[in-house]
């Protein structure tokens, strides 16, 4: 831990500070957006978007390397694929009469496969691993600025439309009867999730971003009494596991994203075990009385 703290203040290691800042800024999205994704049961949809993003990254690398669109950054391709897949998922979810899950799984699989195929045809070496599992030590100042802007947008929207989002997630039909534009709220959530997934994948990678959008929120859900409490609790849990994960990864020379997600999973499972124990104690006390 002390080595990590020393590295944070070492002027020669700015990427460590960037990594920590990325973790803290990502925690706001993991906490606020992750709580909504969890209670609205959109984790599968977010998973499909995050995996489809690899297709956009692969396409951008391919077009840039072939000189068709020189200098095209992978994040642009990722953003285009994320928004397109979110739109497609939104259309399928709202309009498809059947086989919604098959269509969403197809978007998940085709996006990933396209990414691998484009990378295979990209001259030079394009390593899918850093996109799949993240490389937090390569976070740029631009990434941090974008994360900060998205944090601000998500927090402001969450404050302004908290009651509507809560109602739509709790009982969609009733919310619609109260005049809440439920389809609009759903599509806005999908769009925000798509953009967030693109920015968050630099931190933990495509494969694990969905874990961080659900595990801290589910952990906070053990104790939260409201959706707002869940958002705050999940943000705090994300800050703890992100910072702790980075410190462990630095000390043990391990991939940071994988350590952070493992830690988040361990905290979630410890929470489940504690909750189970508390429930058993409560039952035996009532039985004795």
């Amino acid at each position: 831990m002390s080595a990590f703290v020393a590295a944070l203040f070492d002027p020669a290691l700015p990427f460590v500070r960037n990594a920590l800042l990325a973790g803290l800024l990502s925690s706001v999205l993991f906490g606020v957006l992750g709580s909504v994704v969890t209670v609205k049961r959109m984790a599968g949809l977010a998973g499909a978007i995050s995996h489809a993003v690899l297709g956009g990254i692969g396409l951008a690398l391919f077009l840039a390397s072939r000189g068709i669109l020189p200098g095209l950054p992978p994040v642009v391709g990722a953003l285009v694929f994320a928004v397109l897949s979110a739109a497609l998922i939104g259309f399928v979810s709202l309009r498809a009469k059947q086989r919604e899950d098959s269509a969403i799984n197809a978007i998940w699989a085709i996006g990933m496969s396209l990414g691998i195929l484009f990378m295979a045809r990209t001259p030079g070496y394009a390593d899918p691993m850093s996109y799949l599992f993240g490389n937090i030590l390569l976070v740029t100042t631009r990434d941090l600025a974008l994360l900060g802007v998205l944090d601000l947008i998500v927090v402001l929207l969450a404050i302004r439309y908290y009651r509507q989002v809560e109602a739509v997630a709790f009982d969609e039909e009733f919310a619609r009867a109260r005049g809440v534009p439920t389809e609009g709220v759903f599509l806005a959530l999908l769009a925000l999730t798509a953009v967030a997934v693109v920015l968050l994948q630099t931190f933990v990678g495509i494969v694990m971003v969905i874990a961080m959008l659900t595990l801290p929120a589910a952990t906070a859900g053990y104790v939260a009494k409201s959706l707002a409490g869940m958002m705050v609790g999940a943000t705090i849990a994300s800050v703890v596991v992100s910072t702790g994960g980075l410190a462990v990864a630095w000390a043990a020379d391990l991939p940071a994203g994988a350590v952070v997600v493992t830690l988040a999973g361990a905290v979630f499972m410890a929470g489940a075990a504690l909750r189970g124990l508390a429930g058993r104690k409560g039952r035996s006390k009532r039985g004795a009385a």
């Binding site: 809560e166 109602a167 709790f170 009982d171 109260r178 809440v180």
Partner: peptide, 25 residues
């Protein structure tokens, strides 16, 4: 309605959903 028993919401917050009027309260 089918509801998620792990959804963290108090009775007061559920009742408050009735005060919603579109995007306002």
């Amino acid at each position: 309605p089918a509801y998620d028993p792990s959804f963290p919401v108090s009775v007061r917050d559920v009742v408050r959903m009735g005060v919603l009027h579109g995007l306002t309260e």
